[in-house]
Design a protein around this nucleic acid. Sequence first.
RNA 1: CAACAUGUAGCUCAACGGUAGAGCAUCUGAGUUAGGAUCAGACUGUCGCGGGUUCAAAUCCCGCCAUGUGGACCA
Length: 881
Amino acid sequence: MGSLAPARFLFSTKKTPMASERYNAKANEEKWQRIWDDAKLFETRTNPEVDRETYYVLEMFPYPSGRVHMGHVRNYAMGDVIARYKRAKGFEVLHPMGWDAFGMPAENAAMKNKTHPKGWTYDNIAAMRTQLKSMGLSIDWTREFATCDVDYYAQQQKLFLDFLEAGLAYRKNAKVNWDPVDMTVLANEQVIDGRGWRSDALVEQRELTQWFFKISDYSDELLESLENLDQWPAKVKTMQANWIGRSRGARIRFPLVKSAGTTATEIEAFSTRPDTLYGAGFMGLAAEHPVSLELARTNPDIQAFIEDCQKIGTSVAAIETAEKKGFDTGLTVAHPFIEGKELPVYIANFILMGYGTGAIFGCAAHDQRDLEFARKYGLEVTSVLADPGSPDQPFPVQNEAYLGEGVMVGSGFMNGMAKEEAIEAAIAKLADARLGGSPMAVAETNYKLRDWGVSRQRYWGCPIPVVHCSACGVVPEKQENLPVVLPDDITFDKPGNPLDRHPTWRSVPCPSCGKAASRETDTMDTFVDSSWYFARFADPTAATPTNPKATNRWLPVDQYIGGIEHAILHLLYSRFFARAMSITGHMDVQEPFKGLFTQGMVVHETYRAADGSWLQPAELRVEDGQNGRRAFRLDSDEEVEIGGIEKMSKSKRNTVDPDDIIETYGADTARWFVLSDSPPDRDVIWTEAGVEGAHRFVQRLWRLVNNIAGSGEVVGAPDSDLALRRLTHRTLANVDGMIPGLRYNSAVAQIYTLVNAIDQAAKKGDVSHAVLIEAISICIQMVAPMMPHLAEECWAMLGNDSMVSASPWPRIQTDLLVDLEITMPVQINGKKKGEITLAKDSSKEAAEAAVLAEAFVQAALSGKEPKKVIVVPGRIINVVI
RNA sequence: CAACAUGUAGCUCAACGGUAGAGCAUCUGAGUUAGGAUCAGACUGUCGCGGGUUCAAAUCCCGCCAUGUGGACCA
């Protein structure tokens, strides 16, 4: 395992600057970035040696908004640490970068500024690439691509056609979420509290013909495979499981008894709790249920009630607070188990047509919603669960439904059974019973997860490669006619989709019959673009969507890092895509991301002037004195209110521009600060004081290296030498254990301790030069993944003629991790009273004798015998009196 | 409303059964024309509260309180 690149430098490594000089971050960072580039140090080799293990680290690729923000800095710094660490550990590392470049903002900018989405996007990419490069990330830039590159979306069109052929993509007429502001369809996942995720506009329901991906076929698979993702945060797995929303139950058919106004003879309800059937007090229908709609045709009151329900039904927020309302239809159904019992049928506003059958049986005693409804309309509340200790006494139910465990009571054949047993028994009995010749119930599993609607009525997206022919219908475009390229000559003077009104683009011959036909003008949801980009990085110039050989070598991504906001959408779609791409032969990996890390946000104090306007941190100065923290405007010296700590955002103006920080302090300081201050999965509070502290450390470390490198031979005391060597290797062992788990802030704390010790040793002069060099060298190597430029400069100053970025990780000398003689605390009755130094391997008996001989122990005993002496070898001794 | 996470120095966080520590801030001193940088040093803790287990609890268990996050008519 040698260095990865030839190490030849154009400057002298032996130069030893004066200790009074300051480290010039800007000049050094530019210099080292150029040297890394010239050495092609971070280019991943397509054919690494066979014995070299691969490691794929990926951060969620950015949307090219135009500016890099602190969240990006944190995200990419975190990934870069692991990439550089794994490289030093001898892995062949893939660490690429790309751009999630399609989407609405480009079109909005086009409309506003009369620019073209393409020009706007590529300009932004160029600006952000420069910014990211100034961070000194160890990225293989030769693999860079944008999802709006024709080369990329051409491959995506091939994937679409393969999905279409495999039945994974289909077209259906569906009620869709329509965003009236963006004038496009949204996926369910993109509707938050009834509003568009981007526009915040109230979403309407419209009936349109749309393209869908059959993600619902994989509901079980996607749910059950979550268990195997042991390197994913539990929280994300829970969120995905909830989103898939599997519930097992039964469809139960209830025969109608009183049926005035409907032609139906039965109503089918879905329930996960058929065990509570004996407690059923009513039946509820959704407003859109066919029976409700049929009744409404002849009953104006029902018509009015349904309209009322639908008004509320547009926004989730409204549903949450809405009062339970119902309408007694006068219909009744027969209870399946209790001879002669009839249940009244209500239309109720809390029942959703989209889930189950749109009808329920209400068991008021064991469902809170049903209970509220029953109390309001004076319906039956019968508890059918009892404490196993007194199985004849049902749990009393007043205003809170009983949702816990229990045994069945008042439930005929189910009496005495526990929940699961009773559910099985109820389903079995109903399955045997006949209604009109077929079983009264079938077991069924329901899911919340719906098929993924991918059609978007937008220009700036991947065109869906199909043609509409009046004779042949919907025809896939021929492979040889791909890619279907977006036209450049488009206008944004009107809302809606520019592709629809393009004069010629739509007109094509039908791929099947050759007659005049027209192209599909919908483009794909941008989440499609991001669902497979990680696979493309394995071979970004392949003539097919993936090069299976490369994909199989690199995937799954070993460590994926990004924000928790993608816990459901992007990650679930990508998991689906991996499966769909496996079916269609594009790769063999089912789970795309082996390890997932969700990083916290970068947050900052907010500042508000007396007139209520928000101020930027750069516009004021903060005093931190005895009167607490106070902030003043730089221009007027007026005091402003220091507000809450919030996510950096344009609206609150509490942003800090990474460019400014890198210009002032350098990329290393910015990286060190975001990595050191809080655990990576939690929010980090950006403070000026913290940045300055980080920068002081940069200067201090550089000065320390300078001093050590420039000092002459020192002969140290054997004890001090050993102590520093021990600390060095113990720190190395600890840091080595922390980096793979992304516990960077803990690693930083360890490094601080070591630097303090080296500093002290250098000043005292009781440690030999060679030991100091070893300590500071290992220290620099541990710092290198986090502050790579500073580390290179220090590494060179220490006389190394290789780059630290190309050097193997230092080896831990394990014999230094164990002490021969150790100082242990001595407790008396569990409280520390003193210390004792013993040989590492002294026996319990010897330790006990030595402790009892100590003066402070004798004093505490005052002549008595100790009740007990606990000796934990190597840890502690406790004398119990 | 149930779930999960988090409560340790003024602030941000370590330690995860066995000696409570770092950085920042604050204070004192050195130095400097001054400020900054630097150096030397100092202060700060019922480890959220209450109980339990243990020779020993910040750490494990139970209960409560506070804060945060994302869910919430999914039958």
